[in-house]
């Protein structure tokens, strides 16, 4: 399927407007908003990491409202069972038959809060659904409505009593977005907005307007998939991923899925930049969110105080950009 330049312009405009609309409710966190929106356009799932109270839930609610999508939130706890997430079959006495009670996973945007607090069995159930985009209950498959996106959150502190996600499962997330504290000006604006004429501290996304329908998101995703990627850019993405495998300080590099994710996100990034082709800059910008959870740094590097972001930045600085 080829997309006309007009369609690209239209898609790009919508993406821009979606970003602006979310920003009306989510103060600051520009990079996080952009990465989450790009992931939605690329059809990927997001792992959000940040301290509590930085607006993770607000971001997801605002995003859901922009395309009138359904939004569900599951607070992961150590006693959460797979059936609590995906749903289960119950026997209906009136009809004398089993009926399927769908779990909260049947939604457009699912916020899996503190995913690392649930045991591996429940995590696996969710991650399987993320991969297959369908749920099997009592042997019957139930496809999930498009667009479907999981935003799982992790708390960087309080690792006590958690079940860290294994590398293989982390790979299922297209990006890992780090949400940092807002700047002083942003925090001031945030305090003003959330306290003026409000009762309690409930998150309010009233300021966010619905711009599109869920079906339009699916169309946008198709447009993003058509963004042109030159061979050199493709080669650059693959070279970045391959370089992570023998880069000093990186113990385990990213797998082939890393390069695929890099290109997917770079495409969405290009659309947000109002371009219908991917440049090496898009790949470079996508590299950090896409690769930071796909690599494992060596204990020596960890002892030296290095982290995945710093190592990847060093790699990107030294890896030659594509040859023209």
């Amino acid at each position: 399927m080829s997309v006309s330049p007009e369609h690209f312009t239209q898609a790009s405009d919508i993406a821009q407007r979606l970003q602006a609309e979310i920003a009306r409710s989510v103060v600051g966190q520009t990079d996080a908003v952009r990465a989450v929106l790009a992931s939605l356009l690329a059809g990927g799932h997001v792992l959000l990491e940040g301290m509590p109270g930085l607006g993770k839930t607000l971001l997801v609610k605002a995003l859901a409202k922009t395309f009138s999508g359904q939004f569900a939130r599951i607070q992961f706890t150590p006693d959460l069972m797979p059936a609590d997430v995906v749903g289960h079959a119950v026997f209906d006495l009136k009809n004398q038959s089993f009926t399927v009670r769908r779990g909260p996973i049947f939604t457009h945007l699912l916020l899996a809060d503190e995913i690392n607090r649930a045991p591996a069995k429940t995590q696996s159930a969710l991650l399987e659904v993320m991969q297959e985009r369908q749920v099997t209950i009592e042997g019957e498959s139930h496809p999930l409505d498009a667009p479907y996106m999981v935003l799982a959150t992790q708390n960087p502190i309080e690792q006590e009593g958690t079940y860290p996600l294994p590398e293989a499962q982390l790979d299922r997330f297209l990006v890992k977005v780090l949400m940092d504290y807002p700047s002083a000006a942003e925090e001031l604006e945030l305090a003003r907005l959330t306290t003026q004429g409000r009762i309690g501290d409930a998150l309010d996304v009233a300021a966010v307007n619905t711009l599109i329908k869920p079906e339009t998101v699916a169309t946008l995703q198709q447009v993003v998939a058509q963004v042109r990627v030159d061979e050199q850019v493709l080669d650059y993405a693959v070279r970045i991923v391959r370089a992570t495998r023998d880069w000093p300080g990186i113990g385990i590099g990213a797998g082939p899925r890393g390069a695929i994710a890099l290109i997917r996100l770079a495409r969405a990034w290009a659309v947000l930049e109002q371009r219908d082709f991917v440049t090496p800059d898009d790949v470079k910008q996508a590299a950090l969110p896409v690769l930071r959870h796909r690599i494992a740094i060596t204990p020596e590097a960890e002892l030296e105080g290095l982290d995945a972001d710093r190592l990847l930045r060093g790699l990107l600085e030294q890896l030659p950009a594509p040859r023209a």
Binding site: K284, Q285, L316, Q318, P320
Partner: peptide, 9 residues
Amino acid sequence: LAAGFTEGD
């Protein structure tokens, strides 16, 4: 300008 700079950089 470093060797790893892209056009955007």
